[in-house]
Nucleic acid binder design. Structure first.
Lengths: 202, 202
DNA sequence: CCTTCAAGTCATCGAACGCTGACTTGTGGA
DNA sequence: TCCACAAGTCAGCGTTCGATGACTTGAAGG
């Protein structure tokens, strides 16, 4: 029956805290939506995980759909453009392979959102994210002609890596870290972008 | 008001044909499940598309789940191993890019099934298919060490291409045909497998 | 024509869904 | 101490879901 620790933790335990409850709902929603998809997740599931009444979801977020939108709006990803250009692809692969995405059930948010891609809205948001965050940056880097296609082909590779690691869970890729992939990242990125690329991030 | 044509088509119009009705239900289910995923599809939707009563689904298939399993069990894919080994990757890409998958909503069945990957059963079946049909064949072809990882990386690329073409619908890849991709297929496959590979299929 | 039996329909079940409005409860300020 | 108000709960709405069993319909054989 310690006191200092409990007091220190009290903010987490304290009841009737609107913001804390809202945050717990968001966290539970993020995990459920990522693991099971939009349709297979019920508002009662989420509220149960958060330990509150399901009504609060509608009070705080308006509807299940709006909760989904807020829960799956990615927290600002570390700026991929910061750092040497020749390491861009390695940095991208790192966000898929090494980043801690436990809040999204262990998968990159984009991969998790694919599970809810039956809905057009979700597909639109995935497209925006893939094009703006990945394809555009890669196209700027590519040399020669056909840069759009080659940037998309490289983006496809990284999306595919995310899928095979988590959804499909093939044996070798599931276990791999960025360092294991480094030489292959270098050769594929170099081949597709038409300029020397590194497989390591520093 | 032709007669010969109508007579020729009569088998399609004829009523009270158990096998024909079963086939129509399977076809409608395939399309709905592929486009909208398992959870977003109701048995009433499927029966409506097929123009029959929803009860027949349970009579003919037992349950919604069993209908899903039968509808998404891929029709035997053309044998990928038939043909020159150096064209294997090009043949695989062809099944993703050029093959007519209108029965699955225009996507490769594996990509369509990802939309139902919230359920563990579906994930298991996707894994089986990816590993047995793609990874194994590619690993047998790879030279040197790390063959499993490199085979999976190449599989990831093709899965990613399927995703970006349909679900994400990025501009350049959506329009591309295998012939547009041929040079890139050749370089990436050659780099990852460690042996010369072709981007064309003949 | 009329019986027969499979093919197909209808009415409905219980459970779960998203969502609402009225209610209760805890807490901070007077 | 007590009040006011926000935080949280409760009962239940209308709908849709997968699934069932009793019913109707239509075509083939005698």
């Amino acid at each position: 029956m310690s006191t200092v620790d409990d007091l220190a933790r009290e903010p987490a335990l304290q009841k009737r805290d609107r913001e804390a409850t809202r945050a717990r709902l968001l966290e539970a929603a993020r995990l459920r939506f990522a693991r099971e998809g939009y349709d297979a997740t019920s508002v009662r599931d989420i509220a149960g995980d958060a330990g509150v009444d399901a009504t609060l979801i509608f009070r705080y977020f308006g509807s299940k759909k709006q909760l989904f939108d807020q829960a799956t709006t990615a927290d600002s990803p570390a700026d991929l453009l910061a750092g040497p250009p020749e390491e861009l692809v390695a940095r991208m692969v790192r966000t898929v392979v090494d980043h801690d995405w436990t809040a999204y059930g262990g998968e990159h948010p984009l991969v998790a959102m694919l599970r809810s891609s039956a809905h057009e809205d979700t597909r639109l948001r995935i497209r925006e994210e893939v094009c703006h965050t990945y394809v555009d940056a890669l196209r700027d880097l590519a040399e020669g002609e056909d840069t759009a296609l080659r940037a998309e082909l490289l983006s496809a590779w990284m999306v595919g890596i995310g899928i095979l690691r988590s959804v499909v869970a093939t044996p070798a890729l599931s276990e791999a870290r960025t360092s294991d992939l480094a030489p292959h990242i270098a050769t594929v990125a170099t081949a597709l972008l038409g300029r020397p690329m590194s497989g390591n991030t520093d």
